[in-house]
Design a protein around this nucleic acid. Structure first.
Lengths: 200, 200
DNA sequence: TATAATTAACTTAACGTTTGTTAAGGAAAG
DNA sequence: CTTTCCTTAACAAACGTTAAGTTAATTATA
């Protein structure tokens, strides 16, 4: 009989995303995804042409609208220092609250072929990166804005990438996973690194 | 007939390492590794109990001695500023010249279960991290030394993790991949971030 | 010193499993 | 009566792994 709750594309993606994030493309099988959805493996092919298509749809879904709130901050009319602080804080929150997002970005940067890297760049990074680079230029000519932009984004990403190994490292404390604490640390470091006094 | 050039464990590892780095554990098959070595898949089982064992041996080989040169710098008797500058420069060189190293670290942080994370921590990170944290304490109490240590290592790692996607981002220039340029940028940023004047 | 026994380093062939994917069909909603 | 959303069954290919046999170098024995 026809199922009472037909599974939509979105439901499948919702299940597939964390599986791809945790196990990678080759690590997450169609059967595993199907099972978690509560459906046969063949059913997935009713919604998606093949695994690649499903994977790409998952990527696009995770990436969409993610950069929006960040771009809004970057194009705000407050002072550059405030925009930087807000940007860092927001990025920390984002990365902390949606682990799939940062894990999938990471995987794409390692596994992605040219076409998928282009997708990642255009869908997530490009405009965002442009905004950060321009903000860096505003903040002062002390550093190469490109290198500075990568540094800022990199610090944030890395702090949360290392979450899993953190417990096995010395001096580790719980507060180091708090996005607010991390955000303040990074903001302070970067602003002072730019020769700007950081209030409080 | 018996092969004229019997393949040693090390030769197999030399081939396996870049394959694991590029494709991950499940992405690199025993047959692929064997083919690249120039040997049958079954031959690998003469040298290693199973795939897990081969993988772990590859990890250990890549990680061994990697942290040594860095630890030497950290325990040097020069000024803290100099040690930081040297450390950052050396880490940039290391990560740039052995891509397998940083890719495998990255994969382990994502894929590794508890036992493998412990291996990674004890084999690569622990002593190194301890050294950087202590250096950070010496450099001044302006920041939490733990967060600062992660930030420093993170900036370096991220700069080289993003190499693949770099060409598709705005403002990208070739010099941004030069470890010397990156090292100088990071050193300047961090030292100024600590309120220390960076010479030159 | 010649020869027999052992061992290291493989080979081919096959195993059972899992993989992505397809074919054929069925039930229910519009 | 078509379309949507699924099912079970099956496919060939690739997977990790093992069994059994082969060759050549090494070692032990006579």
């Amino acid at each position: 009989m026809r199922p009472l709750n037909p599974k939509s594309k979105k439901e499948i993606l919702t299940v597939a995303i964390p599986l791809f994030a945790r196990s990678g493309y080759s690590g997450a099988s169609m059967r595993t995804i199907a099972q978690k959805v509560g459906v046969s493996a063949a059913a997935l092919y009713h919604h998606f042409q093949d695994k690649q298509t499903l994977y790409l749809a998952a990527m696009t879904q995770v990436f969409s609208d993610k950069a929006d709130s960040l771009e809004k901050i970057l194009s705000g009319r407050t002072s550059p220092e405030q925009r930087l602080a807000q940007f860092i804080t927001r990025l920390c929150e984002l990365v902390q609250q949606d682990k799939n997002f940062s894990m999938l970005i990471q995987r794409e940067m390692m596994d992605g072929d040219e076409s998928r890297l282009k997708l990642l760049a255009s869908e997530v990074y490009y405009t965002l990166f442009e905004g950060v680079t321009e903000l860096c230029q505003e903040l002062g000519p002390k550093h190469d804005p490109y290198l500075l932009a990568i540094s800022i984004i990199g610090i944030v990403m890395y702090h949360f990438q290392t979450t899993a190994i953190r417990p096995y490292l010395p001096y580790s404390k719980e507060q180091h996973s708090d996005p607010k604490v991390v955000a303040r640390h990074i903001t302070k470091l970067v602003l002072q690194g730019l020769g700007i006094d950081y209030p409080e």
